[in-house]
Design a protein around this nucleic acid. Structure first.
Length: 420
RNA sequence: GGCCUAUUAGCACCC
């Protein structure tokens, strides 16, 4: 029994999940008593590695094996489900557990509220908050920050600002997350000066800007085209003992890429390696996109091979940049080939990728093919966006097929996509 | 005590 516990722990920790579950099976068959705390090692590990489905199904197995389920493991599973965009499933799970006498905690509710925010359904997040209050839980700083963040995702910055300021007004302890959120809101709404003032006054409130606060402000300045201030902040943070991280470098690399300064961007990649800063998918995607934009697909492909070799994962953005690169050059066969690759890896092409393809065919003057891609989106359940319609409408206009263009305008209204 | 919250990368048109 002791050996099983040890094995289970090690397998779980190393991500050898089949083996972990094998041990679990054996323990169950042998009639060993299995505790909730013991199972949590696996739940947490599955969570960390994004294996939400397995996490959920293992939890079901725990229930089936009569493990003494606690709020802790329930909360872990809910966390995973929420992060994976499966809030409804998480909510159902919570309700099921409540019926078994397990009471959620404030943090459990916060996770669900966050889940709805991730989904972009803030109204449901508010409903969950109301339920939480009904149960006698007062919202805490996390709750407020989560809601402010959710509203930011929807670009509802004015409302977000109210929630962040409410933290300060309600006399909660001042929190660096609240301040960073506010710096972001101010910066994104064109009040970079105010953002800077807030940033500078933070210390007076007893809050020290951290890496995220710096990164937020740096992004604000570079998007405004103020490279001097961007660099100054970069140096200031290093002097102040806040070490630039992956996001900091990614932001700067993207800035150089957008300006077409690919050598500079590449140099920063070198700096990251020299300083031991982790390189990630965003780093490479920014670079790949930069090369694609200057139509240097050779270099873009070289980088994608490099990231493959280094074990940096591709995501939808990475493929999107490459596919768009091919579409802009009207190399449609190559674009399709890349789409095949991503699907083989279990990534579903999204709206943006389809938009690039449609644009490619439109630019080629092949509206039949463009329309076929459009229909394929429907069949595969990929949502149309305002860009999808604009692209295709533009395509029809350019070849003088005005009736088709008008038809699409009707189509979009029927779908509830508002013309801009 | 720990666990939940903030920052960076992809698409059309116009400018």
């Amino acid at each position: 029994e002791k050996l099983c516990r040890m094995l289970f722990r090690v397998y779980s920790d190393k991500g050898m999940f089949e083996e972990s579950i094998g041990v679990f099976d054996y323990m169950e068959k042998s009639g060993f008593k299995i505790h909730d705390k013991f199972c949590r090692v696996l739940l947490l590990s599955l969570n960390k590695r994004g294996q939400m489905d397995m996490c959920f199904s293992f939890f079901q197995r725990m229930v089936g094996a009569n493990v003494d389920i606690t709020v802790h493991s329930m909360t872990t599973v809910i966390h995973g489900l929420c992060k994976g965009g499966n809030v409804e499933k998480a909510k159902d799970l919570m309700e099921e557990m409540v019926s078994k006498g397990i009471e959620p905690k404030l943090l459990t509710y916060n996770m669900l509220i966050n889940g709805y925010c991730i989904n972009g359904t803030v109204d449901k997040a508010f409903k969950m908050k109301a339920i939480m209050e009904q149960k006698g839980f007062e919202p805490n700083v996390f709750t407020y920050n989560i809601i402010a963040g959710g509203l930011c995702k929807l670009k509802r910055y004015e409302e977000a600002k109210m929630w962040s300021f409410a933290v300060i007004k309600r006399g909660f302890t001042h929190d660096v997350v609240t301040f960073s959120t506010l710096v972001n809101i101010l910066s994104k709404t064109g009040n970079l000066e105010k953002a800077k003032l807030l940033f500078e006054s933070m210390e007076k409130w007893g809050v020290r800007p951290n890496i995220v606060t710096y990164n937020t402000l740096i992004d604000g300045y570079r998007k405004k085209g103020n490279l001097e201030e961007t660099k100054r902040l970069f140096e200031e943070m290093e002097k102040g003992g806040v070490r630039p991280d992956t996001t900091t470098y990614n932001t700067l690399i993207d800035e150089y890429c957008k300006k077409g300064k690919m050598e500079e961007a590449h140099k920063l990649l070198g700096h990251m390696e020299a300083k031991g800063v982790r390189v990630d998918t965003v780093t490479y995607t920014a670079l790949i996109d930069g090369y694609c934009k200057e139509e240097n697909l050779e270099e873009a492909n070289r980088l994608s091979e490099e990231m493959e070799k280094r074990g940096v994962r591709y995501n939808t953005f990475t493929y999107s940049s490459l596919i768009d690169g091919y579409c802009k050059k009207v190399k449609m066969e190559e674009a399709h080939k890349r789409m095949g690759h991503m699907e083989a890896r279990g990534l579903r092409p999204d709206t943006v990728i389809y938009n690039s393809l449609i644009d490619g065919y439109c630019k080629k003057g092949n509206l039949e093919e463009a329309k076929m891609i459009f229909d394929e989106m429907e069949n595969r359940g990929v949502r149309y966006s305002i860009v999808t319609y604009s692209t295709l409408i533009d395509g029809y206009c350019k070849i003088g097929k005005m009736e088709e263009a008008h038809k699409l305008r009707g189509h979009m209204e029927a779908r509830g996509v508002k013309p801009n």
